[in-house]
């Protein structure tokens, strides 16, 4: 017996299994290609990091109930060649510069924050060369103060494929920076603000 619905089922089953096989093939060769290009050993150089700390009191700069919060901005130089990340299954790469540090009041708290990121959609844009660039975000910590800490800067990347798994990695080359201590000026500003509120 042969009917239209049976025919439809057969065809759709075949199409589905072919699609699954094709996707598996694409993903496998994509991963093999990445290993062959040695993408997990790419290097970067982050230099000339100039931190700048401001005290903000807006909720959108991390302040709770108007209490002052230290915000960090930096300027930096960045060199990296990420062209090996581009192959035939790469839709875009997302590059981000992060800083890692430990808590001051609670040293058991480990943090990582993004200061700059960028979306690269073609191979020509994958050679990054920034000079005295400004950080994209104004960064605050869960603690009120961010000053007087050791930050480690690193460049990470994420490949967004056309199909398949999202691939993450970090470049070799990290750059440590110690943030300066804040002047007692902001401390007095904080106490005067409090007394005003009372």
């Amino acid at each position: 017996m042969f009917s239209l619905s049976q025919r439809f089922q057969q065809t759709s089953n075949q199409a589905l299994s072919f699609a699954i096989f094709a996707a598996a093939f694409v993903v496998a060769t994509f991963c093999a290609q990445l290993y062959q290009d040695n993408v997990f050993g790419l290097s970067s150089s982050i230099g000339n990091i100039q931190p700048q700390i401001n005290v903000r009191t807006s909720r959108f700069y991390g302040s709770v109930n108007g209490r002052p919060k230290e915000n960090l901005k930096i300027s930096f130089d960045l060199e990296s060649d990420l062209t090996p990340l581009f192959n035939w299954n790469t839709k875009q790469i997302f590059v981000y510069l992060t800083a890692e540090y430990n808590g001051l009041k609670k040293p058991s708290v480990k943090s990582e924050v993004t200061l700059w990121d960028s979306i690269i959609t073609d191979k020509e844009g994958a050679v990054i060369s920034l000079n005295n660039a400004k950080s994209k975000y104004s960064v605050w910590d869960i603690e009120e103060k961010l000053s007087d800490r050791n930050l480690t800067f690193k460049l990470h990347w994420n490949i967004q494929p056309w199909i398949g798994p999202l691939v993450y990695g970090e470049t070799n080359g990290e750059s440590p920076v110690t943030l300066p201590q804040t002047k007692p000026k902001s401390q007095s500003a904080r106490t005067s603000k409090r007394s005003e509120a009372v």
Binding site: S108, V109, S111, V113, V139
Partner: peptide, 15 residues
């Protein structure tokens, strides 16, 4: 996408 993470290693809680 995650922009920042703060993890307390004693309690294992992450913000």
């Amino acid at each position: 996408r995650v922009l920042r993470e703060h993890v307390d290693e004693t309690s294992g809680k992450q913000l």
